[in-house]
C-alpha cells in the first residue's frame, strides 16, 4: 500500500531499504507497512532490527532498522501520544527512529519535548537525530542555538544540523566565537567546522539577527 502522500525522501528511503535487505525482510517490510494504518504495527516497530538486520543502507548510510521504523511511523501516521509513548518506552535505537520520523508526521510543535529530551542526553546517536528538519522547523531560536552548541560540545559535526545556513544568527555566531576563544585560550584546537561557520560569517559583522 503506497501512501499517496509519501514524501519523495521517504519513497527513496523505502526503495533503498527494500533493495538492500534480504528478500524475506523486504517481504516483511512490505506487509507490515501495508497494515500500518490499522493492525499491531507497534510490535513490528519493536522487532524491526531483528527483521531487517543491523546493517546500514548503502546510499543514505542510515541503519536499515531506523529506515524501517521511520517508514512504519509514517505509514501509521503516528500521533503525538503514540510517538511520545514509543520514545519514552524505547531503547536508544527506537528513540532515534522516532526523532528522525517527526518531520514526516502530522505534528506541530507539540513534539518538541522529545527533541528537548534527546538534547539533554550526551548520546550523540540521539543528538544527531534530534537536530534534523523537525528541530529546524520548531525549536525556538534560543533552543536551537543551544542545540547547535550541544553538537559542538559533544563532537557531532555541524553537517548534521538541519537549517544551519538559514537559522544561524548573530547571537549563535557570538556564542561560537566565544567558544573558539575559550578553546584557543586553553591551547586547544577549534573544531574545523566551527571555524568554517565563523569564517563564513564573522561574529563581529553580524548578519540580520532573527530573534523569535
Amino acid at each position: 500500500m503506497d501512501s499517496p502522500t509519501l514524501p519523495q525522501a521517504l519513497a527513496a528511503l523505502r526503495a533503498e531499504l527494500v533493495e538492500a535487505v534480504p528478500h524475506e525482510a523486504a517481504e516483511w517490510l512490505e506487509a507490515t507497512l501495508g497494515w500500518a494504518a490499522d493492525a499491531d504495527w507497534e510490535s513490528s516497530f519493536a522487532v524491526a532490527t531483528r527483521r531487517v538486520g543491523r546493517g546500514a543502507l548503502p546510499v543514505s548510510g542510515m541503519p536499515a532498522a531506523d529506515a524501517a521504523r521511520v517508514l512504519l511511523l509514517h505509514a501509521a501516521d503516528a500521533d503525538l501520544a503514540t510517538v511520545t509513548r514509543l520514545y519514552q518506552q524505547g531503547d536508544a535505537a527506537e528513540r532515534r527512529a522516532v526523532l528522525q520520523a517527526l518531520s514526516y508526521l502530522h505534528l506541530g510543535p507539540e513534539a518538541v519535548p522529545l527533541v528537548e529530551d534527546a538534547l539533554r542526553t550526551n548520546d550523540t546517536r540521539l543528538i544527531v537525530a534530534a537536530v534534523g528538519d523537525y528541530a529546524a522547523a520548531h525549536l525556538d531560536q534560543h533552543q536551537w542555538r543551544h542545540a547547535v552548541l550541544k553538537c559542538v560540545f559533544t563532537g557531532v559535526p555541524l553537517t548534521a544540523v538541519s537549517g544551519l545556513a538559514t537559522r544561524t544568527d548573530a547571537e549563535l555566531l557570538r556564542m561560537l566565537g566565544d567558544y573558539a576563544a575559550e578553546r584557543e585560550a586553553a591551547g586547544r584546537p577549534v573544531p574545523e567546522d566551527v571555524g568554517e561557520v565563523l569564517a563564513a560569517q564573522p561574529p563581529h559583522q553580524p548578519q540580520h539577527p532573527q530573534e523569535p
Binding site: 546500514a56 543514505s60 548510510g61 542510515m62 541503519p63 550523540t124 546517536r125 544527531v128 559542538v152 560540545f153 559533544t154 563532537g155 557531532v156 559535526p157 553537517t159 548534521a160 573544531p191 574545523e192 567546522d193
Partner: peptide
C-alpha cells in the same frame, strides 16, 4: 552513518 556521528575529536 553518513559520517553523521563520526566524532571530530572535540
Amino acid at each position: 552513518y553518513a559520517g553523521n556521528v563520526l566524532r571530530r575529536g572535540a
